[in-house]
Amino acid sequence: MSDGMTVLFALGVMAAAVGGAAVLTWFERRLLGVWQDRYGPNRLGPFGILQVAADMIKLLTKHDWVPPFADRVVFIFAPTAIVVAMLMGFAVIPFGPDLHIIDVNIGLLFFLGMTSLAVYSVLLGGLASNNKYALLGGLRSAAQMVSYEVFMGLSLMGVVMLSGSFSLQDIVAAQRDMWFCIPQFLGLFVFLIAGIAESHRLPFDLPEAEHELTAGFHTEYGGMKFAMFMLGEYLGLILISAMIVTLFFGGWLGPWLPPIVWFGIKTFFVICFFILLRAAIPRPRYDQLMSLGWKVMLPITLINLVATGAIALWMHDGGAMT
């Protein structure tokens, strides 16, 4: 692609991601409705789709309030950071054989870096609010992110070992014979859970935890700034889903249909699965979250790493791979 085309494509991806996130707010509610034997938003427009527009109008026209006790600059900066970080993450996603904004040889690391940046948004938002609930939310978020980051990265090392590259295009290409979800089922499992924790969606939304912390880190936020946080969360959801598809489900690979469609379908199902998790599983206690991370997930990751390494070595020795 020429530079001009890349810029256009990047804008297109951005628009699609943001638009997708917006539609997702409605879609998630409808889907939750289905699983909870009710309808969800069904009043505005066909199937209630215009609920998105209504919500937008409401959020945009709300009083843009900065509490007098808040740290003004940081308070305003925090919600933008998460959106930017998440959008950046889309840069390395391969949507098709040659359909990507950029294909770098450290694509995977870039993704991990960008998702990690999101923690600043939550942490700073919580700190800048100067509110005890927000601060607690921010602190939880920091601890949660740091903990889950560790094996999130480690869980992907199996994929890297099998594909021998950090480039996402290469990783997709390496799955032509077999999707990595089969040899790396443990990695998939850990990454899935870490991904939910990273995007702090239910059941791991402890930084928000409305039952204990009012609304956690975004207690003091409203209107547009609150919308940014929500946008960031849904972008994160799409990004993690896209990443799971890329790393474990063969990315754009698939017969008959064009690659981008395959990519879209797979991502859609992963998103649905995330929503299903939200519908089904309650939020754990904070200490449970931590012990799950350090006492269960980390060992599993390490076992996976050792096993994958061993198998890869054995296979290598056996001449199965070059």
Partner: peptide
């Protein structure tokens, strides 16, 4: 649990 919820589709 996830399976049971899914059945509610």
């Amino acid at each position: 649990t996830i399976w049971r919820v899914l059945k509610h589709t």
